[in-house]
Design a protein around this nucleic acid. Structure first.
Lengths: 215, 215
DNA sequence: TAGATTGTTAATCGATTAACAATC
DNA sequence: TAGATTGTTAATCGATTAACAATC
C-alpha cells in the first residue's frame, strides 16, 4: 500500500500472511481487529503478527487496531492476489485429476486454464471444465495464454523434463508434487509438496515425541 | 543406534533426514559416502548434514565418511520406519480417493488399512484394495486394529469433528489436508498440507521475487 | 485526558556455518 | 605417515519475543 521501502521478509512469514488473511475473512462482521485478537484466531503471537505486517507498511492505528476491510485488501495485494493468475497442471494421474476437482484448488485469483498429459486416451477430454491437452503443445499454450504458474503432478521420472519445458515456456513459479529436487534457474520459484516426506515426518513424530522443538 | 543421550533436534531437520535417506537409496551402489558428497546430492551444506546426523549418534568414520548401508539403516530407525505403521484415511472425496491410489502414499513402512467416509454410496466399496468403512465405526476400528497415523481429507467444516474422533480413538499423529488449524491435545502431533496456502505462496513469490530470503 | 494498541528497537532465542582438533 | 573427513565448538546469522515510546 505505502510506497516506502519494503523490509526484508522471511519466506517463513508468507504462509503466516495467508493465515492472517484467512482469519480476516472469518472476521468480516467486525470493523476493526487488534493483533491480540488475530493472535487468538491464528495461534501466532501478537508481536509476530505486528512485525510481519509492519514489513509491508503501516496498516494499523495505535490504540485502535487494524481496519478489517483495509487489512484484508492489503494482504490481497501483498500476497499478489490483486490479479488473476493463469495456472496449468501437468500430469493428469490420480493426484492431478483429483486436484483439478479439488475445491481448495479452485480459488478466486487463480484460473486453472489447462491440464497436460502424454496419454492420448486423456488428451481431448475435459475434467471439471479444464481441457486436457497434449504435452507437445505445452510451450506454445503457456506462452500464448500467459500461464504464469504451474503444478507438476507427473511421476518423479518425468518431472525434471516437464520442469524444463515449463521453464523454457517462461513460467514464473512451480508447485511440485513429484518427490525430487527440481533444478531450475534462480528466476523461477519452486515450492515442493512431498507426501512421502510428510508421511516420514509423521512416523518420526509418532515414534519419538520428545526432544523436538517445532516451528 | 548408540544409546547416548540424544541432542535436541529442530523440527526443520526432519524433512532433511528424509532427503538424506532418499539420497542414500540412490547411492546403494557405493560402499561409503562423505558429507560433501551427500551435500552435492541433496543441496544441503556438508556442515549441516554432519550436524543433523550427529544429533542421533556417531555414524561416520573420520577420514572415510559414512557407510552407506549403515547410515541408511540408522536413518530408517531415526525416522521411526523400523516398524510398520497402520494408517487410516478419513474422507474419500476427490483428494482422499486420489491419495488412496497415489504411489507416493504406498510406501514400505506404512500400511493403509482403511478409509472412512459418511457417504453410504461409498461405504462398503474398496479403493485400490483399501476398504471404505463408515465413520461410525472409526473409533472401534482404530482401537482394534492399532491404527497410529491418520490422514484427514474431509472438507474443512467436518475436519475438527473428525480430528476429535481420532484423538478419542487414541491416534498418535495426523496429516491434515483440510484448510484449518486443528485443535488437538499436545500429545497428538499434527502436520498440515494446505494447497490453498501453497497456491498463495506461489502467487506471492511470482509477484515479488525480490527481498525474499527463503529457508 | 486516560486507556489501548500500534510500530519499532533492543534482547533473546535458535539454527546454520566456519573452523579445527581428533582420528581413521 | 600423509591425506581425508568426521564430530564438535565457537562464530555468525536470522527469526522471534519483550518492551515501550509514539499516538490514536
Amino acid at each position: 500500500m505505502s510506497d516506502r521501502q519494503e523490509r526484508k521478509i522471511s519466506g517463513l512469514a508468507v504462509p503466516r500472511l495467508s493465515q492472517y488473511y484467512r482469519a480476516l475473512l472469518d472476521s468480516q462482521s467486525r470493523k476493526v481487529i487488534s493483533s491480540e485478537e488475530l493472535s487468538l484466531l491464528t495461534g501466532f503471537s501478537a508481536a509476530q503478527i505486528r512485525r510481519d505486517l509492519a514489513c509491508f507498511g503501516q496498516f494499523g492505528k495505535p490504540g485502535l487496531g487494524y481496519n478489517v476491510e483495509d487489512l484484508k485488501n492489503a494482504l490481497i495485494q501483498i500476497l499478489g492476489m490483486d490479479r488473476e493468475w493463469n495456472v496449468a497442471l501437468v500430469g493428469v494421474g490420480n493426484l492431478g485429476a483429483a486436484l483439478l476437482g479439488y475445491k481448495g484448488f479452485r480459488r478466486p485469483g487463480f484460473r486453472l486454464v489447462a491440464a497436460f498429459d502424454i496419454d492420448s486416451q486423456k488428451v481431448g477430454q475435459t475434467v471439471e471444465g479444464v481441457p486436457i491437452l497434449h504435452e507437445d503443445h505445452l510451450i506454445e499454450f503457456v506462452q500464448k495464454e500467459s500461464v504464469q504458474l504451474a503444478v507438476i503432478t507427473v511421476p518423479a521420472a518425468a518431472a525434471q523434463e516437464v520442469a524444463d519445458l515449463l521453464v523454457r515456456a517462461g513460467i514464473r513459479a512451480l508447485l511440485n508434487f513429484a518427490p525430487l529436487r527440481l533444478k531450475v534457474p534462480d528466476s523461477v520459484m519452486v515450492h515442493n509438496i512431498d507426501v512421502a516426506i510428510e508421511l516420514e515426518r509423521l512416523s518420526f513424530l509418532a515414534s519419538r515425541m520428545k526432544n523436538v522443538n517445532f516451528s
